[in-house]
Lab assay of single mutants.
Amino acid sequence: GPIITTQVTIPKDLAGSIIGKGGQRIKQIRHESGASIKIDEPLEGSEDRIITITGTQDQIQNAQYLLQNSVKQY
């Protein structure tokens, strides 16, 4: 399918649970989903961080599912 980009906003407090120790968790999510995932640095004074996910519809759905699971375990 076509490559698309979607953005998800997360509270910055949850960023740690998604990134994992030394970036292990986010690497695993990238690997498992096949999507490209970029977590922006939090904006000055903002409570949120923006996650940019790029890939096919399937890859993005996979990545979103894995991201949600990471947050739930936290």
Score class of each variant (00 low, 15 high):
G1W: 01
G1N: 13
P2G: 14
I3F: 04
I3V: 03
I4F: 06
I4S: 06
T5K: 03
T5P: 02
T6C: 02
T6E: 14
T6Q: 12
Q7Y: 11
Q7M: 02
Q7W: 01
Q7L: 02
Q7S: 09
Q7R: 10
V8A: 02
V8H: 03
T9N: 02
T9Q: 09
T9L: 02
T9R: 05
P11S: 09
P11F: 02
K12W: 04
K12V: 08
D13R: 07
D13L: 07
L14F: 05
L14H: 12
L14A: 13
L14T: 10
A15Q: 04
G16H: 08
G16S: 14
G16V: 07
G16E: 13
G16L: 08
G16I: 15
S17I: 07
S17M: 11
I18Q: 06
I18L: 14
I18S: 06
I18P: 10
I19H: 11
I19V: 06
I19S: 09
G20L: 07
K21W: 03
K21Y: 12
K21I: 09
K21Q: 14
G22F: 11
G23N: 13
Q24P: 11
R25H: 02
R25G: 11
I26F: 13
K27T: 08
K27H: 08
Q28D: 13
I29H: 03
I29G: 02
H31C: 10
E32F: 01
E32I: 06
E32V: 02
S33C: 06
S33F: 01
G34C: 08
G34M: 04
G34S: 05
G34R: 07
A35T: 04
A35R: 00
S36P: 00
I37A: 02
I37H: 00
K38A: 12
K38H: 12
K38S: 10
I39Q: 04
I39R: 01
I39D: 04
I39N: 04
D40W: 03
D40P: 06
D40S: 06
D40F: 03
E41Y: 06
P42W: 05
L43P: 04
L43T: 10
G45Y: 12
G45A: 07
S46L: 07
S46M: 07
S46Q: 14
E47A: 08
E47F: 05
E47R: 06
D48Q: 10
D48K: 11
R49E: 05
R49M: 11
I50H: 13
I50V: 14
I51C: 14
T52K: 12
T52V: 06
T52W: 10
I53E: 00
I53W: 00
I53G: 00
T54F: 02
T54R: 12
T54G: 08
T54I: 07
T54N: 06
G55H: 00
G55L: 00
G55K: 00
G55S: 00
T56H: 12
Q57C: 02
Q57P: 06
D58G: 10
Q59W: 00
Q59R: 08
I60V: 12
I60A: 06
Q61I: 03
Q61W: 02
Q61M: 07
Q61P: 01
Q61Y: 10
A63D: 00
A63F: 05
A63I: 02
A63S: 04
Q64Y: 02
Q64K: 13
Q64L: 01
Y65E: 15
L66V: 05
L66C: 07
L66Y: 06
L66A: 08
L67V: 10
L67Y: 01
L67K: 00
Q68I: 03
Q68T: 06
Q68L: 04
Q68F: 07
N69D: 13
N69G: 14
N69R: 12
S70I: 13
S70H: 15
V71L: 10
V71P: 04
V71M: 15
V71Y: 03
V71I: 06
K72C: 03
K72Y: 07
Q73G: 15
Q73H: 09
Q73M: 13
Y74A: 15
Y74G: 15
Y74E: 15
